[in-house]
Design a binder for these strands. Structure first.
Lengths: 86, 86, 86, 86
DNA sequence: ATTGCGGTTTTTGCCC
DNA sequence: GGGCAAAAACCGCAAT
């Protein structure tokens, strides 16, 4: 069992809690705003004849490829470091 | 079965496709950035004695309450519409 | 990579697999039956002048409120646990 | 815009509304109970070495095949009816 | 390491 | 068939 993590209920800790919550909520709103923007683009694309499903597949595929490339790069860095190539 | 939605492969449609994809990918990156910011806040909060699990629960609860209020409003609108109160 | 989870193809494991599948399928049927019952009630209500859309909204709202309460309780439990009140 | 669907607010219609809502909510609960049972079976199966993902695929496949068969049967009935084979 | 859990996304079904 | 809500599948974190 854990000890009481924050003992100062209602005091300065309460203020910090409020700050944390609000910062997160603010960011969550931003995130939702962007998600909505993305949805709009999909809707617009659909309206001009593109298929949402295919678009999503392309996005996913490119993301995977990008991740692969990053892994490659990381591996390369590792090798270089191991060889003292800075 | 649907026809090919975009026939002009390599032409202007290809350009528009590229634009759509890139706009979405840009926004996805932004979204990820914000998600990372949120994670940072949780990590920081945890480092100063708050429990992540509780924080998340509070956020979720507040979000649901907000949704409730929005649904209440939507329901009220529905009733008004149903009663011809426009 | 995971090993083959069930090696005894055709043997006892096959029998257990069949049992699992059939139990799930049976329950899925029951679930579908209930879903159909719900649809019937909506249809009947609509036939006597209620608007389905509003009914669904009410149901959803009440469900969310119930969830809120449950989350409240869960949060309270979390707090108690965090304070060592077991 | 639609006319007022239920004029007797608070009277007998209110009683009927309550009845409808409660019947639906009751059935929704039942449905949820069954869904939970299904989840339990998946969890149990996983605990004894089956892969949930595969199990779900099997279920889906069998369901499709069953639907196909039902469509086949319906088609057959149609033909028979068209041929007066009753 | 692995398993549960929360969030997100994708699919499905429903109603219009 | 097209939009909308519900369900399911997938993913990623976190805790153990």
């Amino acid at each position: 069992m854990s000890d009481a993590p924050v003992t100062d209920v209602g005091g300065i800790a309460g203020e910090r809690l409020r700050s944390i919550i609000e910062r997160i909520e603010r960011l969550e709103e931003d995130k939702k705003g962007i998600a909505d923007d993305i949805k709009d683009i999909y809707a617009e694309a659909k309206g001009t004849g593109f298929e949402t499903k295919i678009l999503r597949q392309i996005i996913r595929l490119r993301k995977m490829e990008k991740n692969d490339r990053q892994e490659q790069d990381a591996l390369l860095e590792l090798y270089k470091a191991a060889l003292g190539m800075e």
